[in-house]
Structure formats: structure tokens, C-alpha cells
């Protein structure tokens, strides 16, 4: 049986002779896991995420999603939240929902509507009229309303206020299927560390540490946040 996500000796160099952004990275993500991808700015998190989504091509090495290379099939099972706005500004939220519903077979409109009303977001508003935080919420709602096998969330809660952050984290826990997995990158470690199964710490394009979060806590007697600060002390 193939893993949900398998990364083998992955290398990405943006230019010849330059230091690679990712240098021989290998790991796997099985089903039903929530994995945190953590690392300082410029460590290669977003590059890795783009490679998994097929937005970049590897210099060498492999990315396999359910045994297949990124492509049409993988896009149907991965729900991806990019690190920047990807919704058309002129459209209303309602139009964006219709767009997602038409585009993705696994989109659950009812779930999206329910989350919008819980966060009191007016679906008649245009994307460009929303605050940064609200835009992020809308984008995350759309991504989490798909019944995907793998959710890849690049900095999902960075611009969102603490109360909505709690709601979103609960939504993430409540909504994902038992078989599905989530790979998320964030700097807000203390907000998400209680929901992670595993953590991958990357630095300068290499994996510095990869472990179960509970094992790490047991072993070090410290929170993930404290461990992160220790490993990446400047």
C-alpha cells in the first residue's frame, strides 16, 4: 500500500550553482495524521508545499501522492491553501462558493455556508471589500469545505484574530475525515501544537527534526513552542 504522501530525496534549486532551497528531503505522511511543518522564514516550507502541489518541478527526487506524481489526479484529492490570496477580487463570496462547487466534485456547499454564518461573514460581499483577516477566513473555509484526502495549509491562521483562530482550529479538528491528513505550516506554534500528531522542523532546506509531538513532549518535558525557540535560537 502506498502512503498518502511520500517525499523521496527531494531537491529544489532555483538556479544553477545556487544553494538549493530544499536539499535531499525525505519523509512520509500516512492517513489520518495532522502534521506541522515548522521552520524559520526562508527555510523552504513554501517551496516544499509548492512542489507537493505541482506548482514547481523538482530538480531531483520524488513527490508521490497516493503513489502518483503531482498532476490532475493529485489535485482532485489535495485541498490547498496557498500563502497568499488566490480568490478573484471582483467576485462575491457567494460566487466563489459556486465556483468551488463547480470545480471540485468533493466540495460540500452546506459545510461552507455553515462556517460562513458561524463567523458572521456576509456572502454578498466582494472579496476586495473584505479585510485581510476576513479574506483569509473565506479562503480557509473554501479549502476546508472540500472532502479531500490531503489538506495542505500554508500559514492558515496568520492574519486571523485569536477568537476566530480558536473557531478555525476547532473547525479543522471537527471537519476532516478520519482517513484524511493535514499538512500545515505555521509560525504560530503555541496555537496549533495541541492538534498536531507529528512535527517536521526544517532549516536551510534540510529536515532538522521529525517526530511525534507527544513523544517530543515526553522526552524533553517542554512545549513544542519552547523546543522550536531552542532549536532555532538566533
Amino acid at each position: 500500500m502506498s502512503e498518502l504522501l511520500q517525499i523521496e530525496e527531494l531537491v529544489k534549486a532555483y538556479g544553477k550553482g545556487q544553494k538549493p532551497a530544499l536539499d535531499h528531503i525525505s519523509f512520509t505522511v500516512g492517513s489520518g495524521r495532522i502534521v506541522g511543518l515548522l521552520g524559520p522564514n526562508g527555510s523552504g516550507k513554501t517551496t516544499l508545499i509548492k512542489l507537493i502541489n505541482g506548482l514547481l518541478t523538482p530538480t531531483s527526487g520524488k513527490v508521490l501522492i497516493c503513489g502518483e506524481q503531482p498532476g490532475v489526479a493529485s489535485k482532485a484529492i489535495i485541498s490547498y491553501l496557498p500563502d497568499r490570496l488566490s480568490l478573484p477580487g471582483d467576485q462575491t463570496i457567494g460566487e466563489c462558493i459556486a465556483y468551488y462547487r463547480d470545480f471540485y466534485k468533493d466540495f460540500d456547499t452546506e459545510r461552507a455556508e455553515q462556517m460562513l454564518s458561524s463567523l458572521q461573514i456576509d456572502r454578498k460581499k466582494r472579496i476586495k471589500a473584505l479585510s485581510k483577516g476576513t479574506r483569509e477566513k473565506v479562503q480557509l473555509i473554501l479549502v476546508m469545505s472540500r472532502r479531500a484526502k490531503l489538506y495542505i495549509l500554508d500559514e492558515p491562521i496568520a492574519g486571523v484574530d485569536p477568537a476566530a483562530r480558536d473557531y478555525i482550529i476547532r473547525t479543522i479538528i471537527g471537519n476532516y475525515d478520519k482517513e484524511a491528513s493535514i499538512l500545515l505550516s505555521t509560525h504560530l506554534i503555541s496555537d496549533v501544537e495541541n492538534i498536531l500528531d507529528d512535527v517536521i522542523l526544517i532549516q536551510d532546506g534540510s529536515i532538522r527534526l521529525s517526530s511525534s509531538v507527544e513523544d517530543l513532549r515526553e522526552e524533553k518535558g517542554k512545549s513544542l513552542d519552547a523546543i522550536f525557540r531552542e532549536v532555532f535560537a538566533c
Binding site: 495524521r33 495532522i34 482550529i169 476547532r170 479538528i173 500528531d197
Partner: peptide, 17 residues
């Protein structure tokens, strides 16, 4: 397990454990 995990704000696998 799912409901309790949501209430506690933790991973359902951890609650299961």
C-alpha cells in the same frame, strides 16, 4: 471522541489515545 476533541481543542488521535 471527535466531540470531546473539539471541546478540548486537541487532535482526535490524542483523545483516542
Amino acid at each position: 471522541v471527535r466531540d470531546l476533541a473539539m471541546e478540548a481543542g486537541v487532535n482526535p488521535n490524542t483523545m483516542q489515545r
